[in-house]
Amino acid sequence: MKVPKYLLASLAVTAILAGCQGGAPEDDAEMSSDESAVETTETPTTEVEDRQLSEIETDDDSLAKILEQAEGIESYEAILDLTAAVDGGQPEKLEADVRFKDGDPPALHLMAEGEDRTISKDGTTFYNNGTDWIDISDSINVSQLYHVTYKNAVLSFADIKSELELEETDDELIYTLQGKSDAVFETFEALFAVEFGNIDTSQLTNDVEIIVDKQDSLIRSMAYDAEGEDAEGTYELSGEVTFTSFNDIGEIALPEMAQ
């Protein structure tokens, strides 16, 4: 399979990996952290879809309620755990805690390994390379900074809901899938902004669990695991995102040096 230079290239998280986890490829080891941030975010591999929730038409009552509730979400916290690997190589990993406020443009405060890493507000974006806050406003936009937004999660769920099985409890709607589905894999590949390149998915298996709160029709978590193998080797994608604190996010402020 042909694997891009940066597997997670359309997330600013790759810059975070390079800056705080030593995740940069060996041939780029001499790049400074701020240079790595800019190069990574300027080479997206997954185009962000400019879709609106209101564009989705459905006669599915449960999906209609989820879409309606999503329209009223203005802020939230998302905890993301993401791992991707190809051909037995070193996995690229991200553990991020994101506070997100919708708007034009949105604002976000992204933490990794307990440290502030990226803050964006009013179109101004700063990245912490471990030593200094670097202004990367001219090199990146918020859609590249963080792709696993609640809106994108809902859009992804709407795309694959017909392929999922439903288990209902007193409090939750639990949607699952175990098995083969190229459409499901491609949906999560796009949601997590991961690019594997050209791979054979004939041996791909998916494991999905999406939990929706019955009381407020909000997606609380999405967990996804996929693994497969082709003539070039194995590939794996694992991602889990949990959404909390809906419409209860405090002020997001730029670093003091940017005030």
Rank of each mutant, 00 (worst) to 15 (best):
F100N: 09
F100H: 08
M111P: 09
E95V: 12
L164G: 09
D132Q: 09
A84S: 08
E115M: 12
E115K: 07
G130R: 01
Y146S: 04
D116S: 13
T169S: 14
T124N: 13
E168N: 11
E95L: 08
G130L: 01
L108R: 00
S75Y: 02
A96G: 09
V98T: 02
I174G: 01
K161W: 04
Q90T: 15
I79L: 13
T125I: 14
A84I: 03
G72A: 11
A107D: 06
Y146C: 07
P105I: 01
N129C: 09
F100C: 05
I73E: 05
A112S: 15
S137Q: 05
T169M: 06
T169F: 01
G72M: 10
A96V: 05
T131L: 11
A112P: 11
L80G: 09
A85N: 06
D87I: 11
S137W: 01
Q144H: 13
D102K: 11
A85L: 06
D116G: 10
M111V: 12
Q90F: 10
G88L: 03
R117P: 14
N129V: 03
Q144P: 11
V142Y: 05
L80M: 11
G130M: 03
D170K: 11
V148I: 12
G123S: 02
T176C: 02
H109K: 07
Q90I: 15
E115T: 15
W133N: 07
D122E: 14
D81H: 10
G88K: 01
S75L: 03
D122Q: 08
Y76R: 02
K93E: 14
S143Q: 13
E167T: 15
R99M: 11
D122A: 12
T131M: 07
E74G: 15
V148W: 00
L94W: 07
A96K: 00
N141C: 09
S156M: 05
T131K: 11
I119M: 04
R99G: 05
E165K: 07
N141I: 12
E92M: 08
D102G: 14
N128C: 04
E165Y: 06
D116C: 02
A153N: 14
G123E: 04
G89V: 08
G88T: 04
V142A: 08
E165H: 08
T169L: 04
P91R: 00
G89C: 09
E115D: 13
P91Q: 02
E163R: 06
R99L: 14
G130F: 01
K161V: 13
T118K: 00
S139E: 15
N128Q: 05
Y146N: 05
G88W: 03
V98E: 01
E71N: 11
A70K: 01
L145W: 02
D97E: 14
L94N: 12
T125A: 05
D87Q: 14
L110M: 11
V86Y: 03
S143W: 09
D97G: 00
I174S: 06
T118F: 04
H147R: 15
D159N: 15
N128K: 02
V86A: 14
L166A: 06
H109T: 06
E95W: 00
N141F: 09
I119L: 03
R117K: 12
I79D: 15
P105W: 00
D170V: 07
L82I: 08
L110G: 06
N152S: 08
K93A: 10
A84N: 04
L166P: 11
N141H: 10
N152A: 04
E95Q: 13
A70N: 02
F157V: 07
